[in-house]
């Protein structure tokens, strides 16, 4: 891959186990390349290794074996750490535990301040980032009073303010209600589509990955499936054994196919599903 923003080679990782001995394999020799500007979703049940993988992408964790390269930079190189972390921003699951300051705009300013930027530039970036996530009106508010979705958008703004090339989101919607989930997913899609930022979305909810261009399914520290949603979604039985549940739309189509109806497996949204079923009945009318 020419424009690989992220590349891992034989990436292996073990968390420290009991009595100072290394624990079981959390990542088992992962080879992965992610193209610049892509929208990748990494799926897996809890314990599949997806969060562990995410933490290697900005050098929060360092490999036990193998290598991780960010735009060609080896994550083990301490000199390059700041630059790596600037280029790959990470948004975490718990909205509260990412907020550093008591005022929204001060929190978004945290990263640019750490980068030693001049105040005028910090101001520019903070305003820009808040506008992108649609939280500019809340810039003087106290973050702890915001809804979950709003807090996560502030967290995303805090990362955008670093002007990263790539944003990794580790289960950003796990603790949110449907409204909050929608807000965060819309923001992510905007970032990828309108600003060309590479997005890596880690989740166990397949419905959130419909608009991703590439799905990677993990299990036991290994990559089990890798392809566009239209290819991955239909493998219903395999996904079940991997601890994931397909959206009801896919399940419906799959079951109808089992009963002999020839329906396309790549109908992922309810509208597509309905259209496919309608066509099936419609075509056969004289």
């Amino acid at each position: 891959m020419q424009d690989a923003i992220i590349r891992t080679e034989f990436l292996t990782f073990r968390y420290p186990g009991e009595d100072q001995k290394p624990g079981p394999l959390a990542l088992d020799s992962i080879d992965l390349e992610i193209e610049k500007g892509d929208f990748v979703a990494i799926l897996g049940h809890n314990g599949s290794g997806k969060s562990t993988l995410a933490r290697h992408l900005n050098a929060i964790l360092l490999p036990s074996g193998g290598k991780v390269y960010i735009s060609g930079m080896d994550t083990v190189d301490a000199q390059l750490l700041q630059e790596i972390r600037r280029r790959v921003g990470v948004v975490f699951q718990n909205p509260d535990n990412q907020i550093v300051a008591s005022v929204v705009e001060e929190d978004v300013a945290f990263a640019p301040e750490n980068l030693g930027l001049p105040p005028a530039e910090i101001r520019r970036r903070v305003d820009e980032a808040l506008k992108i996530v649609d939280m500019y009106d809340y810039r003087a508010h106290a973050p702890h009073r915001l809804s979950g979705g709003q807090k996560q958008r502030v967290a995303i703004a805090g990362v955008i303010a670093m002007r990263p090339d790539c944003i990794v989101l580790d289960e950003p919607t796990a603790m949110l209600d449907p409204k909050g989930r929608g807000e965060v997913l819309t923001t992510i899609e905007t970032l990828n589509r309108d600003f060309g930022i590479t997005i890596i979305l880690i989740t166990h909810r397949m419905e959130e990955t419909i608009n991703a261009r590439r799905l990677i399914v993990m299990n036991d520290g290994k990559i089990e499936m890798d392809g566009p949603p239209a290819e991955v979604f239909p493998q219903v039985e395999r996904l079940h054994t991997l601890g994931l549940s397909v959206p009801e739309t896919t399940e419906l189509i799959w079951r109808l196919r089992q009963q002999g109806l020839d329906l396309p497996l790549d109908a992922l949204t309810p509208e597509d599903c309905a259209a496919a079923i309608y066509s099936h009945f419609d075509i056969s009318q004289p």
Binding site: Q82, Q98, A109, N114
Partner: peptide, 15 residues
């Protein structure tokens, strides 16, 4: 989260 946003202590920090 702070380290992920490039926090390395007070050195070189602006406001």
């Amino acid at each position: 989260a702070m380290e992920s946003r490039c926090y390395i202590g007070g050195k070189g920090r602006t406001r």
